[in-house]
């Protein structure tokens, strides 16, 4: 299986590569359009700030390539947020795959939302063998509200989308590569799609 991790200078992709290795797979870091198109699975990571990340995607044409992909695509954290219509962070227009706008947590909460929290209302084979209320690791200040594409929820002052799905596109707000054994299982489930 050919797994490509989209490389656009977005932070901690080494961890995803290592997580795939622990599962017995190799992830290839690439920004090359042909290589991404030819992959069996595509992982779209992201750590950092939305508007600068989007600028990087645009400068390489990845912003038009990603929404056209036909194989399973998994956006992680900022990757998931950039797959939405728009994000409040830097007033940034996203890739428009998920029909939802990403907004900032209420000011009365401690932000970033950092640490381990439970995921609930799990849907789709992405969460095969994952128990309701499983703990995952999150680090983020913005969130996607619950919408028709929500396949997992999380509660931090507000109930929001911890995962989204539309057609072949999946997005998770948490970091499966840092969410202990459950996270690795979710990554494995994605590879098994």
């Amino acid at each position: 299986m050919k797994i490509v991790i989209i490389d656009y200078g977005a932070g901690n992709i080494q961890s995803i590569k290592f997580a795939l290795e622990r599962l017995g797979y190799e992830g290839i870091l690439s920004s090359d359009a042909q290589e991404i198109k030819n992959a069996d699975k595509v992982i779209f990571p992201g750590v950092g700030e939305a508007s600068s990340a989007m600028r990087k995607l645009k400068s390489t044409g990845l912003d038009t390539l990603i929404p056209k992909l036909n194989q399973p695509v998994l956006g992680i954290c900022l990757g998931m947020q950039l797959m939405c219509n728009w994000t409040e962070e830097g007033d940034t227009t996203g890739l428009g795959i998920f029909d939802v706008d990403v907004v900032h947590f209420e000011k009365k909460l401690k932000v970033p939302h950092i640490g381990w929290n439970r995921i609930t209302d799990l849907k789709t084979p992405l969460f095969k063998d994952i128990q309701e209320n499983e703990y995952v690791y999150l680090v983020h200040s913005f969130y996607a509200p619950v919408c028709k594409e929500t396949i997992a929820k999380c509660d931090y002052g507000v109930e929001y989308s911890s995962a989204l799905k539309k057609d072949n596109f999946y997005g998770v707000q948490f970091h499966p590569e840092k969410s202990s054994d459950a996270g690795e299982r979710i990554l494995k489930n994605f590879l098994d799609l």
Binding site: S15, F18, R22
Partner: peptide, 8 residues
């Protein structure tokens, strides 16, 4: 460490 450990 990053290669072996699956927590932050």
């Amino acid at each position: 460490v990053a290669a072996k450990v699956n927590i932050p």
